[in-house]
Design a protein around this nucleic acid. Structure first.
Lengths: 136, 136
DNA sequence: TCATTATATGCCTTGACACGTATATGCTGT
DNA sequence: ACAGCATATACGTGTCAAGGCATATAATGA
């Protein structure tokens, strides 16, 4: 019966590293499935499945070239992502300004959030916060 | 022992709709957990958990205000996303140019990819491809 | 027609994550 | 010290997507 995947939002699509790799490859030029397979060193079914997801989400389209299918990028979904990102651009330019204006006026120190239980304090992912107010 | 989540890439973080909602809220101004909880109408543990993920990924930071924690946005991870997106901007401006130049010269028709099995041709997700070469 | 190449799909397993509910921890004012 | 509020964490559960492997389908050339 073949399952219907969810996978709507642009964001979920690009959450997958292999798919991002495919997109980054296709931005250079059209590629056939086999070419993608070889360049990214992933099994062919994996490539095909990801391409299907990308196609159904509008990220790519394909044309037939003899027995192969050539996949090419389509701009719309990425532009959509860009549009979402736009709301933050104002913010981070403002942020840079603020930094420049009063460079060392720290509003409040950043806090360690982990609640010390009896057990070891949970810490993950490498150097945490060590650059937090690192300026000055 | 408390599990260590993966959740590295910026992309996986923003794949979650509630997290995107939180980010979009925080871009306006700092908010406490309770304020987020009320505005987004999600249970408090949910908010706290997402905030933790966002914090550990560097999207937000928090400061203490009496018993509450005020969360504020941090620009870096979103800038990272923006940087990734940059590689495609060249592409889609080029694409727009091409469209403008020969607007109705369709290079190749877009193909239907589903392989007709005995079973019904697989079609998913609503209006498929109906806008594929929709221009002109 | 047949072998070969190219691509798509099916099935199964595994793991990750989001959520609900309950509870722990911590700060504040009395 | 205690009650109450604010936030964080633990645990159990269901869902869903990604990958491996096998196989189906299609086009090509001999």
């Amino acid at each position: 019966m073949e399952y219907i995947a969810d996978m709507d939002s642009v964001f979920e699509i690009i959450a997958e590293p292999n798919r991002r790799a495919i997109l980054s490859l296709l931005v250079l030029s059209k590629q056939s499935v086999g070419e993608i397979e070889r360049q990214l060193r992933m099994p062919q079914p994996t490539v095909s499945k990801h391409l299907r997801v990308l196609r159904e989400a509008g990220f790519v389209e394909s044309t037939v070239d003899a027995q192969r299918r050539l996949y090419r990028l389509r701009p719309e979904p990425l532009q959509e992502l860009d549009a979402w990102l736009a709301q933050f651009r104002r913010f981070w330019s403002a942020h840079v300004d603020a930094l420049e204006r009063h460079l060392d006026r720290l509003d409040q120190p950043t806090i360690d959030h982990s609640r010390p239980t009896k057990k070891t304090t949970t810490r993950r992912r490498g150097p945490n916060r060590e650059r937090d107010k690192g300026e000055k």
